[in-house]
Design a binder for these strands. Structure first.
Length: 942
RNA sequence: GCUCGCUUAGCUCAGUUGGUAGAGCACACGCUUCACACGCGUGGGGUCACUGGUUCGAGUCCAGUAGCGAGCACCA
């Protein structure tokens, strides 16, 4: 059998995914158990703006670990894949593409432009699908959805219509964020606040009928042209007498009044605020409170309007600012200008400074939709956030402070708003144009009836025009968990898989997405959208900078896959869990090495698998097993318990660490070494066959435990285990060379019995094997302690060999002593193994070290056991004395600490009794070791 | 301004009810030992940011300080 010494990940990655997919392993239908518990996840749909990045790879890894884990545990699992049309982002990307060809979207028109976007969407979508396959994501492709496919568009219209009917959605004028570059309205969440160094201008406004003026401070002087009031705090004594007075607004022919409003902070600026209701969200609110007129002086292109006056009309907002300031200076009304840092709102996509404008848009009253979710999180703490801190609070605070959501976007790419208008200015919100027409007709009939009679035939076919705008991309995202499962229809999927089990996502979309899914889920289904919300950490570059396209400092997951393999990369990603982490390529390399270690451990097992079958070797009564067999079974089951528990609690890092150390330290470093002599015995025997079976059986279980994290290498090796497939031996080499897709399995072969009962009859694959739960009765404390003693002995002798510079090839005799018979029997039983592991010529076990020659290096072990390595002629007495002295020093320091702790009456009185006995035990052990050490040192006394 | 995180070995990070500080990488020394040099063995390296408090006992709990970071906010 020819198995390469180095694992080549690509090989396995190319073959198994196609097989899993072809066999239908990803679909919940593979589970035949009618009573199987359900586990479901909907993917945060990647935007169809390009390709996947490290953040996606991170999320997908965690979702896949959970899905595979639950699937192997017998759950009916569904992980729904899909993509998001990502309205404005995608439109911008495609516009940029067009620009390269020298065309703008307006030149080709809406229809042609949309064709281009759809083309882009398909290219990007298939790229994303390819990448997800590469990741090993076990998503059910048969249920793949896109936010703009037919079903989801229907869901969007249904959502809109129902909310409109419930008065949760309305059409009206409101203050919105307007991006002058993208020419669209934006929601508050699509706007980023940025600190900006600017100036604060103090402007004097003359008060009518006096020679006095009132000074206001502003960062945006150009908006003064739209001022309709000046506000002061009602409690501000300085302005007591001017409230109600009128101002002659400079540069205009308007008179405005001075109002009192609590909003004004008397300590800021002059305590008097200019009020521009049409161009500032706060001023807008004040305008409503005081019934101030709206004067729009800035238009959609951020230019001054005719209402701003002939002098300013047509000017850009920044040109207008300079001009206004200049004019105030001429008029002697500019009091002063000071440097001032303030925050400015920028378009989340193009970074243009947004303009607050009054505009006719569609809005959603979110406060009402948030009521139930708010109760859920407060009263039942649902959903459960991981990590709980700070996200539960962040989420709650957000729900408590909701403003209306601006839904409409002046874009072409997205769901068209399902509202139609007739010539009379009537609005019809409907699921389709037909329904809108019907509604229009019904209206017309009603009107006629009201006017005194209805005559059939007089009702003309209504002429309707659909609202040209589209919906915020997050509107369809808000429905994702229910729409992907079939809503608004009452589907089997919806009944089975809703609510979903967990949502795994990044923290920056908790408001944009997570909270809104909760709102719609609760509103339409009466139930939360997911049980848990897991918020991942962020992956930074190695300098701690956020990865971004602009900085070009992103690490491409595909590059990592290429270089180190998917499985290795997944281990790194899973370990990131919820903490922000700098990308560390060394870490990937280390897990690549781990994959290679697994490969080679399996290689060892397979090279010595003749006459052996996986799954056997542990049939005899456990009392008759060798201690190392009881030990590895105990360690394996303990590991399984820990890993199950860790994954359930989303402690992926802990799970990975546990598996890593079980496999490398316990299985490879110790178990394989302890059993090697039996496994590689030259003579064929029942004992050899049994030992081979055992090592294979442990390996097989370990592979299952690793599978959710490392799907490819585990499947590759699992399929190679003897007895799994028809061509047990000869085909192994063939499949290793990797030209064939799948290997035919042997019906009734051993592979089938490893499958979880829910998948009985399925073609065997490790991804449908039962996930080992870990059996408490197989955990053997005594075996663990005994092997631990062997390990310590071996380590100490190796330490002596290393420190004494004994050549690796040189064998030395060994004398081991222990006072109690049990320990002696453990060392006696393990003598051959000890000899092998430390290269001892022979191992003598005795009650004490009296028989050991004076010229021995010695070490004292836990429990008072001792070991001597006779080193006649090799040993430097002075050096050995020094070595022992250092050791004694360590022991006495520890003893000192323990003694002082035990001398503390408070400790003895208040600490738990078992803690105190534990310390006493330790102290007496140290005492034993110290006296043994002393004797050893005496042996070297000159 | 408010809220919240983080600070542990040279680097990247673990540390789950308070009870003798861990891993990987890096470093030093020795090894072509018949699964693996992507390996094996051995070793060095930490006042757990700082100050105080609670406690018999604090990396772990509490308060404050400093540095870094995040989120929220209507200060014109």
């Amino acid at each position: 059998m020819d198995i390469p010494k180095t694992y080549d990940p690509k090989q396995a990655e190319e073959r198994h995914y196609a097989m899993w997919e072809a066999q239908g392993c990803f679909a919940p239908e593979i589970n035949r158990d009618p009573d199987a518990p359900v586990y479901s996840i909907v993917i945060p749909p990647p935007n169809v703006t390009g390709s996947l990045h490290m953040g996606h790879a991170l999320q997908h890894t965690l979702m896949d670990v959970l899905t595979r884990f639950k699937r192997m545990s017998g759950y009916r699992t569904l992980w729904v894949p899909g993509e998001d049309h990502a309205g404005i982002s995608t439109q911008i990307v495609v516009e940029r593409e067009l620009k390269k060809e020298g065309i703008s979207r307006h030149e080709i028109g809406r229809e042609k432009f949309l064709e281009r976007v759809w083309k882009w969407r398909h290219e990007s979508g298939s790229r994303i699908m390819q990448q997800m396959r590469r990741e090993g994501a076990s998503v059910d492709w048969s249920r793949q959805r896109f936010t703009m496919d037919e079903g989801l568009s229907r869901a969007v219209n249904e959502f809109f219509v129902r909310c409109y009917e419930e008065d949760l959605i309305y059409h009206g004028e409101g203050m919105i964020n307007w991006c002058p570059k993208d020419q669209t309205a934006l929601s508050d969440l699509e706007v980023d606040k940025e600190a900006q160094a600017g100036k604060l201008y103090y402007l004097r406004y003359p008060i009518k009928g006096t020679k006095n003026h009132i000074t206001v401070a502003t960062t945006r002087p150009e908006t003064m042209l739209g001022d309709t009031a000046v506000a002061v705090n009602p409690d501000d004594a300085r302005y007591d007498r001017v409230v109600g007075a009128r101002i002659l607004l400079p540069l205009t022919d308007r008179e405005i009044k001075i109002v009192a409003d609590d909003f004004v902070d008397p300590s800021f600026g002059t305590g008097a605020v200019k009020v521009t209701p049409a161009h500032d969200p706060n001023d807008y609110q004040m305008g409503l409170r005081h019934e101030l007129p709206l004067v729009k002086v800035i238009d959609q292109h951020a230019r001054m309007t005719a209402e701003a006056g002939a002098e300013f009309a047509g000017l850009d907002r920044y040109e207008a600012r300079e001009k206004v300031v200049a004019r105030f200076e001429e008029l002697g009304l500019l009091e002063r200008v000071v440097d001032y840092e303030f925050s400015i709102s920028k378009c989340g996509r193009c970074r243009t400074v947004v303009e607050p404008l009054i505009s006719l848009q569609w809005f959603c009253r979110q406060a009402e939709l948030a009521r139930r979710p708010l109760e859920l999180i407060r009263e039942q703490r649902e959903p459960r956030f991981v990590p709980e801190n700070p996200y539960e609070k962040v989420y709650t605070n957000w729900l408590e402070n909701l403003h209306d959501w601006t839904l409409s976007r002046q874009l072409w790419w997205g769901h068209r708003i399902p509202a139609w208008y007739d010539e009379h200015g009537n609005t019809y919100v409907a699921r389709s144009e037909e329904e809108a027409k019907q509604k229009a007709k019904d209206e017309a009939i009603k009107r006629q009836l009201a006017m005194g009679g209805w005559q059939a035939g007089l009702i003309e076919e209504p002429k309707l025009t659909q609202d040209p705008d589209v919906l915020d991309t997050w509107f369809s995202s808000a429905l994702w968990p229910i729409s992907t499962l079939g809503w608004p229809d009452d589907t089997e999927d919806l009944r089975t898989f809703y609510p979903t089990s967990v949502l795994i996502t990044a923290r920056d979309i908790i408001f944009l997405w997570v909270s809104r899914m909760m709102m719609t889920g609760v509103h339409f289904m009466g139930e939360k959208a997911f049980e848990d919300v897991f918020i991942t950490g962020t992956v930074f570059d190695k300098h701690g900078q956020r990865m971004s396209k602009m900085k070009n400092n992103g690490v491409d997951p595909l590059e990592m896959f290429e270089r180190y393999g998917v499985d290795a990369t997944r281990l790194v990603l899973a370990s990131i869990e919820t903490t922000d982490t700098r990308w560390n390529e060394k870490q990937v390399e280390s897990y690549r090495n781990f994959a290679n270690k697994i490969w080679n451990a399996a290689r060892f097992c397979l090279l010595n698998s003749e006459g052996a079958e996986v799954g056997r070797g542990f049939e005899a009564a456990r009392e008759s097993w060798a201690v190392h067999d009881r030990w590895i079974v105990s360690r394996l089951n303990r590991t399984a318990q820990t890993v199950n528990d860790a994954i359930e609690k989303y402690q992926f890092h802990h799970a990975v660490q546990t598996l890593y150390h079980f496999f490398w330290d316990d299985f490879c470093d110790w178990y394989i070494e302890l059993t090697k002599a039996d496994v590689t015995a030259a003579e064929e025997s029942d004992a050899r066959a049994a030992a081979r079976c055992r090592v294979l059986t442990v390996l097989e279980q370990a592979l299952r435990l690793l599978h959710p994290f490392m799907p490819f290498i585990t499947e590759e090796l699992w399929q190679l285990l003897p007895g799994m497939n028809e061509e047990v031996n000869t085909s192994v080499a063939l499949s290793m060379s990797g030209d064939e897709g799948s290997v035919t399995h042997r019906p009734g072969g051993v592979a089938e019995k490893f499958l979880h009962p829910a998948y009985a009859g399925a073609k065997p694959t490790i991804m449908l094997a039962a996930y080992p739960q870990g059996q408490a009765e197989l955990i053997d404390e005594r075996a663990e302690a005994e092997v631990q003693a062997l390990i310590e002995l071996v380590s100490r002798v190796r330490n002596i060999r290393s420190e004494m510079n004994i050549k690796p090839g040189e064998s030395v005799p060994l004398v081991v002593s222990a006072q109690d018979a049990t320990s002696r029997s453990v060392f006696e039983a393990g003598a051959a193994q000890i000899a092998r592991l430390v290269r001892a010529s022979n191992v003598t076990v005795a009650e004490n070290l009296d028989r050991a020659p004076r010229a021995s290096a010695r070490a004292v072990l836990a429990g008072g056991a001792e070991v001597a390595v006779p080193l006649e002629g090799l040993i430097d007495f002075a050096q050995e004395r020094e070595r022992l002295r250092r050791e004694q020093e360590k022991l006495s320091k520890e003893a000192e600490r323990l003694e002082s702790q035990l001398a503390n009456e408070n400790f003895v009185a208040r600490a738990p009794a078992e803690k105190v006995t534990e310390l006493r035990q330790r102290l007496s052990d140290i005492g034993q070791r110290t006296s043994a050490l002393r004797q050893s040192m005496e042996a070297f006394a000159e």
